[in-house]
C-alpha cells in the first residue's frame, strides 16, 4: 500500500478534491464517493481515504473498514498489464488455481498486488463467460483460453519482448530524425 504517487496521480488527487465537494456530507455517500475516486485514479491510495474521512466527518478507520469489505475496491494501483486469472467453477475444476500460482511465482507478487515497476498486477476473478476455454486468464484485454502452467512464462516473455521492441523502435525513430 505504500507506493509513491506518480505526478499524474498527484494531479488526479486535486481533481478528486474538487469532485468531492459536490457530494453532500453524509455517511450514506461513502460508497459512491469511493467509487468516484476509483474511477478517477483506478485505486484507493491512503491519501484519498483520509480525504474522504475528513469530508464526510467520519473516522478514517470506518472508511477503511467499508472499503476493505468490498471486492470492487483496490488498494494497489493496477499494473500496465493487469492479469486476471479466472477461478470460476469450470476454471477451478481445470486447475485455475495452479495458473494463478504460476503467475504469482513468476512475478513474485501475490494475488491483489502489483509489481514494484507497476508493469503487472494479478487479480482473481470469478467467471469471465467463456467456460469452454477453461482455464482462462486475461492479460490486458486479451483472453487466453486453455491456459497451462507452461504457457505462463511464454506469455510474460512475449510482453517483455514487445516492450523491448517498442523501445527500440522509439529509439530508432528519435535517432532517425
Amino acid at each position: 500500500m505504500n507506493q509513491e504517487l506518480t505526478t499524474e496521480e498527484q494531479a488526479a488527487l486535486k481533481n478528486i478534491a474538487a469532485k468531492l465537494s459536490t457530494f453532500e456530507r453524509q455517511r450514506g455517500n461513502l460508497i459512491p464517493v469511493l467509487q468516484m475516486i476509483q474511477e478517477e485514479i483506478a485505486y484507493l491510495p491512503p491519501e484519498t481515504l483520509k480525504m474522504v474521512a475528513e469530508h464526510l466527518g467520519i473516522f478514517e478507520c470506518e472508511v477503511y473498514g467499508v472499503a476493505t469489505f468490498y471486492n470492487q475496491f483496490r488498494f494497489r494501483p493496477p499494473g500496465k498489464h493487469p492479469i486476471k486469472v479466472c477461478l470460476g467453477t469450470a476454471c477451478h475444476v481445470r486447475a485455475g488455481d495452479i495458473i494463478l500460482e504460476n503467475f504469482e511465482r513468476k512475478l513474485e507478487i501475490s494475488e491483489g498486488e502489483t509489481t514494484p515497476d507497476r508493469e503487472f498486477s494479478i487479480e482473481r476473478v470469478a467467471c469471465v463467460g467463456c467456460c469452454a476455454m477453461a482455464p482462462v486468464a486475461i492479460i490486458g484485454e486479451t483472453v487466453h483460453g486453455q491456459m497451462a502452467p507452461s504457457k505462463v512464462e511464454g506469455l510474460l516473455m512475449r510482453i517483455e519482448i514487445e516492450k523491448e521492441m517498442e523501445e527500440r523502435e522509439k529509439q530508432k525513430n528519435e535517432s532517425g530524425r
Partner: peptide, 18 residues
C-alpha cells in the same frame, strides 16, 4: 469508534487504521 471490522470472511480482523 477508532476500531472497525476490516476485510471479509476468514480474513476479517479488527483494525485501527488511521
Amino acid at each position: 469508534s477508532v476500531l472497525t471490522f476490516a476485510k471479509r470472511g476468514f480474513d476479517t480482523v479488527i483494525s485501527s487504521y488511521g
